[in-house]
Amino acid sequence: MTVAPLGLVIFDVDGTLVDSQHDIVAAMAAAFDAVQVPPPSRAEVLGIVGLSLDVAMATLAPTLGAGDHARMVVAYKSAYMDLRAQAGVAESSPLYPGARAALEALRARDDVLLGVATGKSKRGLDKLVEGHGLHGMFQTLQCADFHPSKPHPSMLLTALAETGVDADRAVMVGDTSFDMDMAQAAGIAGIGVGWGYHDRSRLSGARHVIDRFEALPDVLDEIWGVPA
Protein backbone atom coordinates (compact mmCIF):
# COMPACT_ATOMS: atom_id res chain seq x y z
CA MET A 1 0.00 0.00 0.00
CA THR A 2 1.35 3.39 -1.03
CA VAL A 3 1.45 6.01 1.70
CA ALA A 4 0.31 9.39 0.39
CA PRO A 5 2.36 12.47 1.22
CA LEU A 6 0.79 15.01 3.54
CA GLY A 7 -1.90 17.23 2.12
CA LEU A 8 -2.86 20.67 3.41
CA VAL A 9 -6.45 21.96 3.34
CA ILE A 10 -6.58 25.71 3.98
CA PHE A 11 -9.94 27.28 4.77
CA ASP A 12 -11.22 30.80 4.46
CA VAL A 13 -13.41 31.75 7.43
CA ASP A 14 -16.22 34.25 6.78
CA GLY A 15 -18.60 32.87 4.18
CA THR A 16 -16.84 29.50 4.16
CA LEU A 17 -16.68 28.07 7.67
CA VAL A 18 -18.96 30.58 9.41
CA ASP A 19 -21.83 32.84 8.40
CA SER A 20 -21.03 36.22 9.92
CA GLN A 21 -22.82 38.37 7.37
CA HIS A 22 -25.24 40.01 9.83
CA ASP A 23 -22.44 41.39 11.99
CA ILE A 24 -20.30 42.31 8.98
CA VAL A 25 -23.08 44.36 7.40
CA ALA A 26 -24.00 46.00 10.72
CA ALA A 27 -20.38 46.82 11.55
CA MET A 28 -19.83 48.29 8.09
CA ALA A 29 -22.88 50.53 8.58
CA ALA A 30 -21.25 51.78 11.80
CA ALA A 31 -18.00 52.41 9.93
CA PHE A 32 -19.74 54.59 7.34
CA ASP A 33 -21.72 56.36 10.04
CA ALA A 34 -18.42 57.31 11.69
CA VAL A 35 -17.54 59.41 8.63
CA GLN A 36 -21.15 60.51 8.01
CA VAL A 37 -21.47 58.78 4.66
CA PRO A 38 -24.45 56.60 3.63
CA PRO A 39 -23.53 52.92 3.88
CA PRO A 40 -23.24 50.67 0.84
CA SER A 41 -25.79 47.97 0.09
CA ARG A 42 -25.65 44.55 1.70
CA ALA A 43 -24.56 43.05 -1.63
CA GLU A 44 -21.72 45.56 -1.95
CA VAL A 45 -20.53 44.84 1.59
CA LEU A 46 -20.60 41.08 1.13
CA GLY A 47 -18.74 41.54 -2.15
CA ILE A 48 -15.62 42.74 -0.32
CA VAL A 49 -15.62 40.13 2.47
CA GLY A 50 -12.21 38.50 2.56
CA LEU A 51 -10.25 41.66 1.83
CA SER A 52 -8.25 43.22 4.63
CA LEU A 53 -10.21 46.06 6.24
CA ASP A 54 -8.00 48.86 4.92
CA VAL A 55 -8.41 47.58 1.37
CA ALA A 56 -12.13 46.95 1.91
CA MET A 57 -12.73 50.55 3.05
CA ALA A 58 -10.80 51.97 0.12
CA THR A 59 -12.80 49.76 -2.24
CA LEU A 60 -16.20 50.68 -0.79
CA ALA A 61 -15.43 54.39 -0.31
CA PRO A 62 -12.91 55.31 -3.02
CA THR A 63 -13.63 59.05 -2.83
CA LEU A 64 -12.63 59.30 0.84
CA GLY A 65 -9.09 59.84 2.04
CA ALA A 66 -6.75 57.65 4.03
CA GLY A 67 -7.68 59.39 7.30
CA ASP A 68 -11.37 58.61 6.82
CA HIS A 69 -10.55 55.04 5.86
CA ALA A 70 -8.53 54.65 9.06
CA ARG A 71 -11.43 55.99 11.15
CA MET A 72 -13.76 53.57 9.41
CA VAL A 73 -11.51 50.63 10.23
CA VAL A 74 -11.49 51.61 13.91
CA ALA A 75 -15.28 52.05 13.96
CA TYR A 76 -15.83 48.75 12.18
CA LYS A 77 -13.64 46.82 14.61
CA SER A 78 -15.32 48.41 17.61
CA ALA A 79 -18.83 47.71 16.32
CA TYR A 80 -17.96 44.14 15.35
CA MET A 81 -16.50 43.40 18.77
CA ASP A 82 -19.58 44.87 20.48
CA LEU A 83 -21.93 42.77 18.37
CA ARG A 84 -19.92 39.61 19.03
CA ALA A 85 -19.82 40.31 22.75
CA GLN A 86 -23.58 40.84 22.90
CA ALA A 87 -24.55 37.68 21.04
CA GLY A 88 -21.57 35.38 21.57
CA VAL A 89 -19.47 33.84 18.81
CA ALA A 90 -21.72 30.82 18.25
CA GLU A 91 -24.70 33.06 17.48
CA SER A 92 -22.99 35.97 15.74
CA SER A 93 -20.79 33.73 13.55
CA PRO A 94 -22.43 30.29 13.43
CA LEU A 95 -20.68 27.44 11.67
CA TYR A 96 -22.27 26.44 8.39
CA PRO A 97 -24.07 23.08 8.35
CA GLY A 98 -21.54 20.28 8.05
CA ALA A 99 -18.52 22.47 8.80
CA ARG A 100 -17.59 21.00 12.17
CA ALA A 101 -18.08 17.41 11.01
CA ALA A 102 -15.93 18.07 7.93
CA LEU A 103 -13.15 19.63 9.99
CA GLU A 104 -13.19 16.79 12.51
CA ALA A 105 -13.15 14.13 9.79
CA LEU A 106 -10.21 15.75 8.00
CA ARG A 107 -8.36 16.34 11.26
CA ALA A 108 -8.64 12.62 12.02
CA ARG A 109 -6.84 11.67 8.80
CA ASP A 110 -3.15 10.87 9.04
CA ASP A 111 -2.46 12.34 5.60
CA VAL A 112 -4.11 15.77 6.05
CA LEU A 113 -3.16 18.97 7.85
CA LEU A 114 -5.59 21.87 8.23
CA GLY A 115 -5.01 25.59 8.01
CA VAL A 116 -6.78 28.95 7.83
CA ALA A 117 -6.20 31.97 5.60
CA THR A 118 -8.52 34.83 6.50
CA GLY A 119 -8.95 38.57 6.19
CA LYS A 120 -9.81 38.62 9.89
CA SER A 121 -7.43 40.08 12.45
CA LYS A 122 -5.54 37.74 14.75
CA ARG A 123 -7.75 38.84 17.63
CA GLY A 124 -10.89 38.11 15.63
CA LEU A 125 -9.60 34.73 14.51
CA ASP A 126 -8.54 33.80 18.04
CA LYS A 127 -12.01 34.70 19.35
CA LEU A 128 -13.63 32.59 16.66
CA VAL A 129 -11.43 29.56 17.37
CA GLU A 130 -12.11 29.91 21.08
CA GLY A 131 -15.84 30.47 20.67
CA HIS A 132 -16.31 27.37 18.54
CA GLY A 133 -13.91 25.16 20.50
CA LEU A 134 -11.53 24.67 17.57
CA HIS A 135 -8.25 24.76 19.51
CA GLY A 136 -5.75 22.33 18.01
CA MET A 137 -7.76 21.91 14.82
CA PHE A 138 -5.44 23.92 12.57
CA GLN A 139 -1.70 23.53 12.08
CA THR A 140 -1.28 26.94 10.45
CA LEU A 141 -3.29 30.14 11.00
CA GLN A 142 -2.76 33.06 8.64
CA CYS A 143 -4.59 36.36 9.12
CA ALA A 144 -4.66 39.97 7.96
CA ASP A 145 -2.35 41.31 10.68
CA PHE A 146 0.76 39.78 9.11
CA HIS A 147 0.10 39.71 5.36
CA PRO A 148 -0.96 41.83 2.41
CA SER A 149 -4.65 41.57 1.61
CA LYS A 150 -6.01 38.75 -0.49
CA PRO A 151 -5.52 37.93 -3.33
CA HIS A 152 -1.80 38.36 -2.62
CA PRO A 153 -0.44 34.81 -2.08
CA SER A 154 1.55 35.63 1.07
CA MET A 155 -0.85 33.83 3.43
CA LEU A 156 -0.76 30.62 1.42
CA LEU A 157 2.97 30.66 0.79
CA THR A 158 3.55 31.08 4.52
CA ALA A 159 1.16 28.22 5.28
CA LEU A 160 3.10 25.98 2.90
CA ALA A 161 6.39 27.00 4.48
CA GLU A 162 5.12 26.43 8.03
CA THR A 163 3.77 22.96 7.28
CA GLY A 164 6.36 21.80 4.77
CA VAL A 165 3.64 20.74 2.34
CA ASP A 166 4.26 21.06 -1.41
CA ALA A 167 1.98 23.34 -3.39
CA ASP A 168 0.60 20.46 -5.45
CA ARG A 169 -0.60 18.81 -2.22
CA ALA A 170 -2.41 21.90 -0.92
CA VAL A 171 -5.85 23.32 -1.59
CA MET A 172 -7.58 26.57 -0.68
CA VAL A 173 -11.27 26.29 0.22
CA GLY A 174 -13.13 29.58 0.01
CA ASP A 175 -16.25 31.41 -1.07
CA THR A 176 -14.83 34.41 -2.91
CA SER A 177 -12.95 35.25 -6.06
CA PHE A 178 -10.22 36.66 -3.79
CA ASP A 179 -9.65 33.17 -2.37
CA MET A 180 -9.51 31.56 -5.80
CA ASP A 181 -7.19 34.24 -7.20
CA MET A 182 -4.95 33.88 -4.15
CA ALA A 183 -4.79 30.13 -4.68
CA GLN A 184 -3.84 30.56 -8.32
CA ALA A 185 -1.15 33.07 -7.39
CA ALA A 186 0.31 30.59 -4.89
CA GLY A 187 0.18 27.71 -7.37
CA ILE A 188 -2.31 25.62 -5.41
CA ALA A 189 -5.76 24.29 -6.29
CA GLY A 190 -8.79 26.37 -5.35
CA ILE A 191 -12.04 24.78 -4.19
CA GLY A 192 -14.96 27.19 -4.22
CA VAL A 193 -18.03 26.81 -2.03
CA GLY A 194 -21.50 27.61 -3.31
CA TRP A 195 -23.00 28.78 -0.02
CA GLY A 196 -20.86 31.86 0.61
CA TYR A 197 -20.85 35.57 -0.22
CA HIS A 198 -19.75 35.57 -3.86
CA ASP A 199 -21.97 34.22 -6.60
CA ARG A 200 -20.75 31.04 -8.30
CA SER A 201 -20.15 33.07 -11.45
CA ARG A 202 -17.28 34.83 -9.66
CA LEU A 203 -15.54 31.56 -8.78
CA SER A 204 -14.23 30.89 -12.28
CA GLY A 205 -10.72 30.43 -10.90
CA ALA A 206 -11.75 27.42 -8.82
CA ARG A 207 -10.70 23.89 -9.77
CA HIS A 208 -13.97 22.66 -8.29
CA VAL A 209 -17.02 24.24 -6.66
CA ILE A 210 -18.89 22.28 -3.97
CA ASP A 211 -22.37 22.88 -2.57
CA ARG A 212 -22.00 20.96 0.69
CA PHE A 213 -19.12 20.08 2.98
CA GLU A 214 -19.81 16.37 2.54
CA ALA A 215 -18.50 16.64 -1.03
CA LEU A 216 -15.07 17.86 0.05
CA PRO A 217 -13.32 14.49 0.68
CA ASP A 218 -14.18 13.19 -2.81
CA VAL A 219 -12.91 16.41 -4.39
CA LEU A 220 -9.66 16.14 -2.44
CA ASP A 221 -9.21 12.56 -3.64
CA GLU A 222 -9.82 13.70 -7.21
CA ILE A 223 -7.26 16.50 -6.95
CA TRP A 224 -4.60 14.54 -5.11
CA GLY A 225 -5.36 11.06 -6.37
CA VAL A 226 -6.33 8.13 -4.18
CA PRO A 227 -3.32 6.08 -2.99
CA ALA A 228 -3.28 2.52 -4.27
Rank of each mutant, 00 (worst) to 15 (best):
M1C: 06
P5E: 07
L8M: 12
I10S: 10
F11L: 13
D12G: 05
V13Y: 00
S20I: 04
Q21L: 04
I24G: 00
A27P: 10
A34L: 09
V35I: 15
Q36I: 09
V37R: 15
P39W: 01
P39G: 12
R42Y: 01
A43T: 01
E44Y: 06
V45N: 01
I48K: 02
V49N: 02
V49R: 02
L53H: 04
A61S: 11
L64A: 05
G67S: 14
H69F: 12
R71K: 15
R71Y: 10
M72P: 04
V73Q: 04
V74L: 14
A75K: 02
Y76H: 06
Y80N: 14
Y80E: 12
D82W: 08
R84Q: 14
Q86M: 05
Q86L: 06
G88E: 15
S93L: 07
P94N: 03
Y96S: 06
Y96T: 02
A101Y: 01
E104H: 10
E104N: 13
E104L: 13
R107V: 05
A108Y: 03
R109N: 10
D110I: 00
D111M: 03
V112R: 01
V112N: 03
L114V: 05
G115P: 07
K120E: 10
K122I: 07
D126K: 14
K127M: 07
L128E: 09
V129W: 13
E130K: 14
G133A: 12
L134T: 05
L134Y: 09
M137E: 06
F138R: 03
Q139G: 15
C143R: 09
C143D: 14
D145L: 07
F146R: 15
H147F: 11
P151A: 02
H152I: 01
H152Q: 08
S154A: 15
M155T: 12
A159F: 09
R169K: 06
V173L: 14
G174L: 11
G174N: 11
D175N: 05
A183V: 09
Q184M: 10
A185T: 11
A186I: 05
I188A: 01
I188P: 06
A189D: 14
G194Y: 00
Y197F: 02
H198C: 05
H198L: 02
H198V: 00
D199W: 09
R200W: 04
R202E: 00
L203C: 06
L203S: 11
S204R: 11
V209A: 03
I210L: 06
D211C: 01
R212P: 07
F213Q: 06
E214S: 14
E214T: 13
L216A: 12
D218G: 13
L220N: 12
D221G: 08
D221A: 15
I223Q: 12
G225H: 13
V226L: 03
A228I: 04
